[in-house]
């Protein structure tokens, strides 16, 4: 029986038979369907995914006409910070536009939280203005709501990560509710400054990293921003495949936020005024690439099917089926891109 080069979730290279790959694909889609209470991939979709996974080429590509929008969250951290290339942020944006063919990009700073940025937002606004004067592609400004930064010792609010293990649940919940108010205020303020500087949009990144209160803050900020700056596009990218219930009881428009999976997250985001939704599915390092990609596709497809707004899927290290490795292998990223665009029919990556 012939075997195919593929990988495990931590990036380790392995050879697997088509039968084993198919087994993992079926198991991965079943896992997502069970957790998210969504449909599994169809037989035709599974067949096509197995075909993509067993293609002999090192890298694969989409069929002409099935291309998607390409963008980068934490955009200006990729080359100068993570790759260590000594270029400034403006040069990074122009390299992405003119060399790497990004369709849109995010300007951001190393301290990637709205709370931190308000201290130097005027300088960020100047960089945004320069970027707008030099680039053709739409430029967003982005950071994380990062509610944890509002807690002691970094902020004024009691730390719910300390209160919860002490059994002080009411106090932990009250602290999170207080942090939401601060975060909304900061996100609205910074977006206002960036809108003045000509930003095409604002990105709320890794939403939910501090739990359901983090999500509520982003939703409330989006709702307020849509009223104040209707022409500024709002993109909301999630932290994980379901909203972690750090509070557990918070609701938006009468629906509980915690535990929502992408197909429900996107509806809530759209209702709040979000224009582009960033779907995130976590990679399990212990499972195979085939299992992880099938799982990511199942969630992404349900999200796209439910959405009334464009959906982009986070297809970077450790999410979207991409393996957990510092430098992601192109055999993996190209197959993830092809499958997400052709099977899940996402709008972009």
């Amino acid at each position: 029986m012939s075997e195919f080069f593929t990988r495990l979730g931590d990036g380790a290279a392995v050879m697997m038979s088509e039968e084993d790959i198919r087994y993992d694909v079926e198991d991965g889609t079943a896992d997502a369907a069970d957790r998210g209470e969504i449909p599994e991939l169809s037989k035709e979709e599974i067949d096509y995914l197995v075909e993509i996974l067993t293609m002999p080429m090192k890298n694969v590509s989409v069929e002409r006409g099935k291309e998607g929008i390409m963008t980068f969250d934490a955009g200006t951290l990729k080359l100068p910070v993570r790759a260590g290339i000594p270029v400034d942020r403006l040069a990074t944006l122009m390299m992405h536009e003119r060399v790497l063919c990004s369709d849109t990009m995010e300007l951001c700073t190393t301290d990637y939280s709205y709370k931190s940025i308000k201290n130097f937002v005027q300088e960020e606004a100047m960089t945004m203005e320069l970027a707008q004067n030099n680039c053709i592609m739409p430029i967003f400004y982005g950071a994380m709501p990062n509610l944890g930064q509002y807690t002691k010792p970094d902020g004024p609010i009691d730390n719910w990560s300390e209160l919860l293990p002490m059994g002080k649940i009411a106090e932990a919940r009250a602290a999170q509710e207080e942090a939401v108010e601060h975060a909304v205020s900061d996100m609205v303020f910074i977006t206002g400054q960036m809108a003045e500087a000509g930003a095409c949009g604002i990105q709320f990144d890794t939403v939910g990293a501090s739990g359901d209160a983090d999500v509520l803050a982003a939703l409330m900020a989006a709702k307020e921003l849509k009223k104040r700056f209707p022409n500024v596009s709002i993109e909301m990218g999630m932290a994980g495949e379901f909203n972690l219930g750090m509070h557990g009881q918070l609701e938006y428009e009468g629906e509980r936020i915690a535990g929502l999976y992408p197909h429900k997250q996107v509806k809530m985001a759209a209702e709040a005024g979000v224009d582009i939704f960033g779907c995130v599915v976590n990679t399990n390092s212990n499972q195979t690439f085939a299992w992880n990609l099938a799982r990511a596709l199942t969630y992404a497809k349900a999200c796209v099917d439910a959405a009334d707004i464009p959906v982009v899927v986070d297809a970077g290290m450790g999410v979207g089926g991409v393996t957990n490795t510092n430098t992601t292998p192109t055999d993996v990223t190209s197959r993830v891109s092809k499958a997400l665009l052709e099977i899940a029919k996402v709008d972009g990556l």
């Binding site: 919860l164 919940r173 739990g211 972690l244 219930g245 557990g248 535990g259 929502l260 999976y261």
Partner: peptide
Amino acid sequence: KGRMFLPE
């Protein structure tokens, strides 16, 4: 599975 939350 996201069906119970941290306080619980």
